[in-house]
Design a binder for these strands. Structure first.
Lengths: 151, 151
DNA sequence: GTGCTTGCAAATGGTTTGCATAAGG
DNA sequence: CCTTATGCAAACCATTTGCAAGCAC
């Protein structure tokens, strides 16, 4: 998943499978997600694309449509908490959870096997078919804690 | 927390502490949350209040303001996933997580000590100050799985 | 009385949609 | 060609806000 070529091939595979078309816009959105790790809002991504690929014309509606498509295809993942809409990041092999700092809005990712395994057990117990899961821990990161002490 | 009187007293305590006023609207919102267990959207709650307490006049803006206040005070909790806004429920002693069925929109609550403890460890590891956390497992509940088999 | 509250309506802001045009297959 | 995509602007919808009037204290 480190390799952009792999992602691009994956995009083409998905599009073919769904009988959708390979377009410059879709390519560029994927490229933007790939080259800017982190969690971006659609607006931010639009900005990044317009800066990085000024020759490509893309509207916000197309971006939204593309992000929804990517998420469904597993090429991207979204996180949303409270208002302020969703943020997207490139799809990962491993599921991960988030620590969200309410002061600086930083998002720290973590992956914990104990939690993952336990989730599977819970799901089995309820005879529930898990399609996805999200875990967000809201709080204050260590840096912001320091900052507020300094005040 | 089973007792409404306790909740009502808690509301009054919170209001006094914050130098806010005790109003009929706030009382009625709490009452509605208490008497209708489950996860309700603000619109639904407004409906429930207008049906259950037709003598009380309340606007949607007040409801939103009240729900935000309650959440901050721990009297209510919210869950939000994807679009379709937040849903509120009365505050619980024990934190719990959710299994959300994408077919019938049912929300099943569960509490798992293994996961809770592990979260604390993760948080400590990152030197993160946890204020809240949410875990939602999205999928299809056992009943909806049966239904789709029948088709 | 003073200041918090409320209802109403208007504003907001993220996201979606309708539609005519453009372009992939 | 036929079908899916796109950009634009308008539409949506949950939520927030400004404000004058209404209450709690």
């Amino acid at each position: 998943m480190q390799d952009y070529n792999f992602l691009s091939a994956e995009l083409k595979r998905v599009l073919k499978e769904k009988k959708l078309k390979y377009t410059l816009q879709r390519e560029v959105v994927l490229r933007a997600l790939f080259s800017h790790t982190g969690h971006h809002s659609p607006e931010e991504l639009l900005q990044l694309i317009r800066e990085g690929y000024p020759e490509v014309n893309i509207g916000i509606a197309t971006l939204y449509r593309t992000l929804a498509l990517f998420e469904e295809a597993g090429l991207a993942e979204s996180i949303s908490f409270g208002k302020d809409g969703k943020r997207y990041e490139i799809g990962h092999k491993h599921h991960h959870d988030h620590l969200v700092c309410i002061e600086c809005n930083k998002i720290i990712e973590f992956h914990d096997e104990v939690i993952e395994r336990r989730q599977l057990e819970v799901v089995r117990e309820f005879n529930f078919k898990m399609l996805n899961h999200t875990m967000n821990i809201i709080g204050i990161c260590s840096e912001c804690q320091k900052k507020s002490k300094e005040k």
